[in-house]
């Protein structure tokens, strides 16, 4: 598994970390984004994702983080604020099973770049990831 922590593969459009407690959702995101030319790394919950990001000498090279809200251990709200604080340059997208306007507003205020609701078409997800990457490159 160590080799995934390096620089993204040459012909990949970028590397995405997806955090969701449901294997089904991880599978869906991986399928959709792989088809769209991205490399996908999966984590089951916020705790595992944070561990992944911080393992090794350098933070894991990911271009975009996609995070669920309703998860055991470190939940999405906590994971998002952790990533915003520790890795402010990594765009975070929230992908959730239910639209909650209040929560969406709070998260967007925290710097989440997009609030996506499942089920989402492959093209829409890829477009959201692409625009998040473009924005973060411009900011860098």
């Amino acid at each position: 598994m160590v080799d995934v922590f390096g620089i993204p593969q040459k012909n990949s459009r970028g590397r995405v970390l997806v955090i969701d407690d449901e294997a089904d959702v991880r599978k869906s995101v991986t399928m959709s984004l792989t088809k769209s030319g991205y490399e996908v790394i999966e984590a089951e919950d916020g705790q595992q994702a944070i561990g992944l990001m911080n393992s090794g000498d350098n933070p894991l090279a990911v271009d975009v983080i996609i995070c669920d809200i309703r998860m055991p251990k470190v939940n999405g709200i906590e994971a998002v604020s952790y990533f915003r604080a520790q890795y402010p340059s990594r765009p975070v997208l929230v992908l959730t099973g239910f639209p909650d306007i209040q929560l969406a507003t709070d998260l967007l205020k925290q710097g989440v770049v997009d609030y996506l609701v499942k089920p989402i078409e492959r093209e829409k997800l890829a477009a959201a990831v692409e625009s998040a990457m473009t924005r973060s490159r411009k900011a860098a």
């Binding site: 449901e22 089904d24 959702v25 599978k27 869906s28 995101v29 399928m31 959709s32 088809k35 309703r70 959730t96 099973g97 239910f98 639209p99 909650d100 609701v117 499942k118 089920p119 989402i120 078409e121 492959r122």
Partner: peptide
């Protein structure tokens, strides 16, 4: 409602992405 939406939308998402994948 929110919990139900969550639990239904997850497998629905799988159905959608599998179907999209099957198409090509």
């Amino acid at each position: 409602t929110s919990g139900i939406a969550h639990d239904i939308n997850n497998p629905l998402y799988l159905v959608m992405s599998l179907a999209e994948d099957m198409a090509d």
